[in-house]
């Protein structure tokens, strides 16, 4: 059985800018796959090559075994796309926009009308069916983008930053809906720079950085690669950290606390406590902070510029549910 998406050495060059530098990825059918990366990493370019909005410079891309250029009709028929930017036909009410979209995919009008009503109910804007997109609120617009991607019953649903700028409630509604579609067999490709989102939803995550895939792993695998931090509050904190056992990565004093970085905080803690006892320190409090995907992301993409890192942090803060 072919993969839902398979790309090999995919390149895209815009003049001097090399937006994709040999991306090779394989997404299995039924998988919930995340593309994680800061703005400008090449996520949207990758998607747009799959759906035919960007012509690749070189390399190979297939959707369910269909080449995205040679078999473009078959490849596109399998895809439902919810782009980041609002790009909806402004001449027609949203229900009719959905009927048209389904029709382009070969769905007869009567069936298309039923499907349009169904997906509008699913995303919760059925009562706005006769309204034009322009007159919907921001949250409703985001819901509609998902409805349009769903109306063709795609085998591959591509969501490009689907929850960008939406409130917490709507974000959770959209997550639930997307998870349900995935559990029913739809392959999902989600791009996001909200790391929390990828952590919560995705089976596997590809970290994309400056047009390259840096890592492809499950969120758990990625997090297990990072380090934990142990915060120890001491009654009489010394100016320099005391001698500790060998299994810690580094240690330092911060705001009167001993801060210890270790690969596995839980395993290293007894040794840290023993070392402090031996040195005669009285421990008042201990806290272990687990590695977040955000920290792993920053470690993996340590070549990112400050601006890109800011995007990631901002995304993490905004995206936190």
């Amino acid at each position: 059985m072919p993969s839902a998406i398979e790309t090999e050495d995919l390149h895209k060059q815009y003049g001097d800018v090399h937006a994709l530098k040999g991306v090779s990825l394989e997404v299995d059918e039924g998988e919930f796959f995340g593309l994680l990366g800061p703005n400008g990493a090449g996520k949207t370019t990758f998607i747009n090559i799959l759906v035919g909005l960007v012509a690749k410079s070189s390399g190979h891309a297939e959707v369910f075994g269909y080449d995205v250029e040679d078999d473009y009709q078959m490849a596109r028929d399998a895809i439902g796309l919810a782009p980041q930017e609002f790009n909806v036909d402004r001449f027609f009410p949203i229900r009719e926009v959905l009927v048209h979209k389904a029709g382009y995919h070969g769905v007869p009008k009567e069936v298309a009308v039923e499907r349009a009503d169904r997906v509008l109910k699913e995303v919760g804007i059925y009562d706005k069916r006769d309204t034009r997109f322009h007159f919907l609120s921001g949250g409703m617009k985001r819901r509609f983008m998902l409805a349009r991607a769903m109306v063709t019953d795609p085998d591959l649903l591509i969501l490009d930053e689907p929850t960008a700028g939406v409130d917490v409630q709507l974000r959770h509604d959209l997550w639930q809906l997307i998870e349900r579609l995935n559990s029913e067999g739809t392959t999902i490709l989600l791009t996001t720079h909200y790391i929390e989102e990828a952590e919560q939803l995705c089976d596997r995550v590809a970290i994309v950085d400056q047009g390259e895939v840096v890592e492809v792993e499950t969120p758990d695998e990625l997090m297990s690669r990072g380090s934990d931090t142990i915060y120890v509050t001491l009654r009489d904190p010394p100016e320099t950290p005391p001698e500790l056992e060998d299994d810690v990565l580094d240690a330092g004093m911060r705001d009167g606390d001993l801060v210890v970085r270790a690969e596995h905080g839980g395993r290293s803690l007894p040794g840290v406590v023993r070392s402090l006892d031996r040195a005669g320190h009285e421990i008042l409090d201990v806290e272990i902070r687990r590695t977040t995907l955000e920290e792993v992301f920053v470690e993996v993409t340590d070549s990112l510029g400050d601006e890109a890192l800011d995007d990631v942090r901002e995304g993490f803060e905004e995206g936190a549910p």
Partner: peptide, 16 residues
């Protein structure tokens, strides 16, 4: 997949 709109060999498909 629907494919009904995708056949290049059939003119005047539903998609058209």
């Amino acid at each position: 997949m629907n494919i009904g709109g995708a056949s290049a060999s059939i003119p005047f498909t539903t998609g058209f």
